[in-house]
């Protein structure tokens, strides 16, 4: 591994050039700056057909279903579209988070639908169908009007209306590279006290007794020998 030879010639007979056709077949990713986005277009109207034919059964007619996954649509407002911050994310009391509440980048939606949806038939949509159904989702979220046609030309403008486009931060220490973040500085700082570290101890939260069997009988989830055995959670707690 430490020779001075160029890597290209160091491993003769191993690997070959990728062909343009091969690259076209697999290089499908679409970045936030839309690098990789194929040309095409799709209207909200056509998107509705795609949606109702291929998506609604799982995600609900309005993208509201949480039957197979959490809801895609909901929780965003016209004001969010204006500010680029989803206000309800600031409300700790608001239950759940929909996809549209979180996603900052429209490229992410396009790329993911293109590669992975419909769930049971990923990569079966045409490029125009992906544009269309993305448009339909954005329309349900009030990001684009009902008569909108999404295309490679105008998707940049749509980006400027994404409800949570300003909702992301990379100002943290968890990116292991230099390009983003604070360079790896931890946000939480603890110290390793050894003696008399806390004045008193009180329980804040514990698994309630009625839930003790909710994950099945724990006696059956520990081996039959050992320093400890599993509690028989079909019975009331031992006293």
């Amino acid at each position: 591994l430490g020779t001075a030879l160029g890597a290209e010639s160091r491993y003769p007979q191993v690997g070959r050039d990728a062909t343009p056709k091969e690259l076209a077949a697999w290089d499908i990713d679409v970045r936030p700056d839309f690098k990789g986005l194929p040309k095409g277009q799709g209207s909200v109207q056509r998107g509705m057909d795609v949606w109702e034919g291929k998506c609604a059964s799982c995600h609900g007619v309005f993208g509201e279903s949480n039957e197979v996954f959490s809801p895609l649509i909901g929780g965003t407002t016209k004001n969010d579209v204006a500010t680029g911050r989803v206000a309800r994310l600031m409300d700790a009391g608001f239950p759940g988070r929909t996809t549209l509440m979180k996603v900052p980048t429209v490229s992410t939606l396009w790329d993911y639908i293109n590669r992975a949806m419909p769930w049971t038939q990923p990569k079966s949509l045409s490029t125009d169908e992906v544009y269309a159904v993305t448009a339909y989702l954005l329309n349900m979220a009030d990001v684009v009007p009902a008569d909108f046609t999404l295309s490679h030309d105008n998707i940049g403008q749509v980006q400027a209306r994404m409800p949570n486009r300003n909702g992301m931060s990379t100002d943290h220490g968890l990116w292991p590279g230099k390009g983003m973040g604070n360079g790896g500085k931890p946000d939480v700082k603890a110290r390793a006290c050894m003696k008399d570290c806390v004045p008193g101890v009180a329980l804040a939260s514990a698994l309630p007794d009625f839930a003790r069997n909710a994950h099945g009988n724990l006696a059956e989830q520990n081996r039959s020998v050992g320093a400890q055995h599993g509690a028989d959670t079909t019975q009331a707690p031992r006293t």
């Binding site: 979180k102 996603v103 980048t105 992301m168």
Partner: peptide
């Protein structure tokens, strides 16, 4: 540039008290 994939833009983003998500954590 980073890719902003589904699992870097919708999931595996950490919601902070100020309502912002940490991305690429």
């Amino acid at each position: 540039q980073p890719y902003g994939t589904k699992d870097e833009a919708i999931h595996y983003v950490d919601l902070m008290p100020d309502g912002k998500h940490r991305q690429y954590s």
